[in-house]
Amino acid sequence: MAARTQVGTAPPAPEGTAAAGAAAAGARTGARQQRAGRAGALAPGAAARTAAAAALLLGPGVLVLALALGGGVEGARHGALGDGGAAVRWGLPLAQLALRATSAATAGLLLCAVALLPNPDAALSPAAAAVLRRCRPWALAWAASAAAASVLTAATVAGTTVPGALAALAAPGTWQAWWAVEPVRALLECTALAGVVALGVRAVRSHTAGWALLLAAGLALLPQALTGHVVHAQAPRLAAAALAVHVLGAATWTGGLLALVLLRRAPGPHLAHALPRYSRVALVCFSAVVLSGAVSAAVSLGSAGALTSTSWGRLVLLKTAAVLVLAAAGAAHRRWSVPQVLAGSRGAFARLGTAELLLMVVAVALAVALGRTPSP
C-alpha cells in the first residue's frame, strides 16, 4: 500500500527552484499591476466623465443651433440633384463634428506620447506606451466617423438617402466615378489613413515608429481641408492651404490639451514634464489658427461688411470670440496653472483645462457649421 502511494506522488522540487519560480511569478504579477496602474491613472474619473457628458451635449447642441441660425441645413435641402432627407442633412454635420473631435484626440494623444513625455531611450517609456494605448479607441472612432461622413457626403452629392448612397457606392463599376468626387475621395482617404493609425498603435514600440505614426495622423488630417467651401472661394488654393494649417493647428492644440487633462491623474512627474512643452506648442498652434483663420475669412468674405451682414460672417465673429477666450485661458495656464503643476498641485490645471476643452468643443462645432453654411 505504501509503495503504491509513493508511485503517484511527484518528488518535491528543490528549494532553490521553487524560490526562483515564486520570484518570477511575483515579477510578472508586479509588471501587470504596474501596467494596470498606469492604465487606471489615465482612465477618466467621475469629474472627467461628467465633463465628457457635457461635451456630448454641448457640441451637437451648438452645432444644431449654429446650423439653424446660419441656414446650413436649408441650403442642403435645395441641392441641385435633390434632397436626401433630414437624416442626411443633419447627419453629415454631426458626423463631421465627430470626425473633428476624434481626429484631434488621436493626434493629441500621439503627440503627447512621442513629443511631450520624456523618451530617453530608443524604446517608448512606460508612461508614453500607456498614453499610446489610450489612442487606439479614438483612432477607431475617427475611422468610423470618417466612413460615415463619406457615405453621407455621397448621399448629399447624389441627392439620395443613406441606403441609396450605400447601394450606389457598392454598385459595380462606380468606384471610378465616386473617386472623382473630391469630397468623397478626401473622406475615403481619411478613413483609410485613420485605420492605419488605429492598427499601427498596437505595433509601435520605438520612439521612431511613434513619430512615423504621428506623421500618418497628420496626413490623415489634411483631407479635411478639401471639404467645405474652399473650392468655391475666390482663391481656392490659398483657401485650401490656409484651411490645412488651420485644421492641423486646431487638432494639435485641442488634442494635446485633452491628452494632458487625461494625464493629470498619472503618478510621477509626467505632467510636470509635459505641460511646459505643450505650452510652447499651444502658443505656436494658436498663432497658426489665428493667422490661417484670418486668411480663410478674408478669402471667403470679400469685404469687411460681410462680417455683420451675412450669416457666415456672424458665425466667424462667434468663433473668433471663442478663440479669444481660449487665448485668455492659455495665458492663465502659463501664469498660474503651469507654476502650480511644477510645484506639485494639479487642481487648478484640471479645472481650467476641463473648462477650456468644453470651450474648444464650442469652437469646433462653430467651425463645422461654417463649413456647412453658404459663404458670401
Score class of each variant (00 low, 15 high):
Val204Ser: 03
Val204Ala: 05
Gly210Thr: 12
Gly210Gln: 09
Gly210Glu: 10
Trp211Leu: 12
Trp211Gln: 09
Leu215Met: 09
Ala216Pro: 00
Ala217Asp: 07
Gly218Ser: 14
Leu219Thr: 12
Leu219Gln: 01
Leu219Trp: 09
Leu219Lys: 02
Ala220Ser: 13
Ala220Arg: 06
Ala220Tyr: 07
Leu221Phe: 03
Leu222Arg: 12
Leu222Met: 07
Leu222Pro: 00
Ala225Cys: 04
Leu226Cys: 09
Leu226Glu: 13
Thr227Glu: 06
Thr227Asn: 13
Thr227Gln: 12
Gly228Lys: 03
Gly228Gln: 01
His229Lys: 14
Val231Gly: 15
His232Gly: 11
Ala233Trp: 02
Gln234Ser: 14
Gln234Cys: 00
Gln234Asp: 13
Pro236Val: 13
Pro236Cys: 06
Arg237Ser: 14
Arg237Cys: 01
Leu238Arg: 13
Leu238Cys: 02
Leu238Ser: 14
Ala239Met: 02
Ala239Thr: 11
Ala240Ser: 15
Ala241Ile: 01
Ala241Arg: 10
Ala242His: 13
Leu243Tyr: 08
Val245Lys: 09
Leu248Arg: 02
Gly249Gln: 07
Ala250Asp: 01
Ala250Asn: 05
Thr252Trp: 04
Thr254Glu: 00
Thr254Met: 09
Gly255Gln: 10
Gly255Thr: 12
Gly255Asn: 12
Gly256Asn: 06
Leu257Cys: 05
Leu258Phe: 04
Leu258Arg: 07
Leu258Thr: 09
Leu260Gly: 11
Leu260Val: 07
Leu260Tyr: 06
Leu260Arg: 10
Val261Glu: 08
Val261Phe: 08
Leu262Arg: 15
Leu263Lys: 10
Leu263Asn: 08
Leu263Glu: 08
Arg264Ser: 12
Arg265Thr: 10
Pro267Ala: 14
Gly268Cys: 04
Gly268Gln: 12
Pro269Ile: 10
Pro269Gln: 01
His270Arg: 15
His270Phe: 03
Ala272His: 03
His273Glu: 15
His273Val: 10
Leu275Cys: 01
Arg277Asp: 03
Tyr278Ser: 00
Ser279Gly: 14
Val281Ser: 05
Val281Cys: 05
Val281Gln: 01
Ala282Tyr: 01
Leu283Pro: 00
Leu283Ser: 14
Cys285Val: 11
Phe286Arg: 13
Ser287His: 07
Ala288His: 02
Ala288Leu: 11
Val289Glu: 04
Leu291Thr: 14
Gly293Pro: 07
Gly293Ala: 11
Ala297Asn: 06
Ser300Met: 14
Leu301Phe: 13
Gly302Phe: 06
Ala304Thr: 15
Ala304Glu: 11
Ala306Gly: 05
Leu307Ser: 06
Ser311Ile: 00
Arg314Pro: 00
Leu317Trp: 02
Leu317Cys: 04
Leu318Thr: 03
Leu318Ala: 13
Thr320Gln: 06
Val323Leu: 08
Leu324Cys: 05
Leu324His: 02
Val325Thr: 06
Ala327Asn: 08
Ala328Trp: 06
Ala329Lys: 07
Arg335Ser: 11
Arg335Phe: 03
Val338Asn: 01
Val338Asp: 08
Leu342Lys: 09
Gly344Arg: 10
Gly344Asn: 04
Gly344Ile: 06
Ser345Thr: 15
Arg346Ile: 04
